[in-house]
Amino acid sequence: MNNHSQTSKHTISALVLDKPGVLNRISSMFRRRGFNIASLAVGQSENPDLSRMTFVVVGNNSVVEQVTKHLNKLIDVIKVLDLSSENVISRELALFRINSSSQARSEIMNLSNIFRANVVDIARNTMILEITGDEEKIVAFEEMLRPFGIIEIMRTGTISLKRGMDASTSLPQPKERKNQSSWGEAASV
């Protein structure tokens, strides 16, 4: 494999048919080709027959190129976009269960206010906090909570959309798709 650049995290979005087994086809392809997924989030799209997936993939540019090409090759995958270099909004939701003695509660709530996190559950010695943001924010919040004692973390994985009016991750109109002959354009084989 060619080494064009340093290994880093890349965000890829895919529009796929909402059918049984699609996630299996995709994860099987990642496993077989040795691609490394840092996170994966799936949910329904604006079209009830289609799901949108966001992958965060670790690798250099040529790895990401191969990932997008192999995703495109799958019959049930309709469109793939590499969002790494785009102007995108990325968000993740995380839940933290932490130790919280009664003395520590106000300090934790202060921290939560700074990070715009919410207290969603409270028990005698523990709390659950909810936070939304990009990965850096969630990691920073986790660091601040660590001294109190983190019991459990649950994260959704990153979801991303491109900024602005250009809804380029939506299903192209039939007319547009006729121009798929250009090299590098989404085309399955």
Binding site: V16, L17, L74, V77, I78, S181, A187, S188, V189
Partner: peptide, 15 residues
């Protein structure tokens, strides 16, 4: 009706 399967055939003219 296979929206996810459109093999490119023509080759890009400038290429």
């Amino acid at each position: 009706n296979l929206p996810g399967y459109k093999p490119a055939t023509g080759g890009h003219p400038s290429q």
